[in-house]
């Protein structure tokens, strides 16, 4: 197994206009290397929700995309905090701590993390005051 594609994207806190730009680019990149539309869509939905979360809740962070030659797509969302106090609660559909600004833009319904988990093959989340790391894996050949 070797990495055939590696790219990093910076996400900026409170950049409500630019939010989604990284996920749009990720979708475009995956399309250019021939990832099937259904999988590309799942990656895009998960990436977009996680990117929005970084903009709304975190103080910025980095998204890392890796694609390997055996058909594995990995996305890592590493933000700079302040962390999620109760991950179990955050994974509950409908639970949200989003502010009014986020809601006015169509987010903050409390479906972000449940949505991400739904469309990924493997989902892992770790959080502390220093930041949250979400690891997502998608298998192209399954």
């Amino acid at each position: 197994m070797s990495v055939i594609l590696h790219k990093e994207f910076e996400v900026i806190k409170d950049d409500y206009i630019g939010a989604g730009r990284a996920s749009s680019e990720i979708k475009s990149i995956l399309g250019s290397v021939g990832i099937p539309p259904k999988i590309m869509r799942n990656v895009a939905v998960a990436s977009y929700e996680a990117e929005i979360n970084m903009v709304i809740h975190a103080t910025g962070g980095i998204i890392t995309l890796d694609v390997t030659d055996d058909g594995v797509i990995k996305l890592v969302f590493h933000d700079n905090g302040p962390g999620i106090p109760d991950i179990k609660k955050a994974l509950t559909p409908g639970f949200s701590t989003a502010n009014e600004k986020a809601r006015s833009l169509g987010f903050g319904a409390g479906m972000g993390l449940p949505n991400i988990r739904r469309v990924t093959d493997e989902f892992d989340i770790q959080s502390s005051e220093d930041g949250t790391i979400i690891n997502l894996t998608f298998y192209v050949n399954e």
């Binding site: 989604g20 749009s24 979708k27 869509r41 895009a44 833009l105 169509g106």
Partner: peptide, 17 residues
């Protein structure tokens, strides 16, 4: 169908094809 006239409704449509 939405009343949301901002980049995020466009992004949503894009992600979903």
């Amino acid at each position: 169908i939405t009343g949301l006239a901002n980049p995020q409704s466009l992004n949503t449509a894009e992600m979903l094809d």
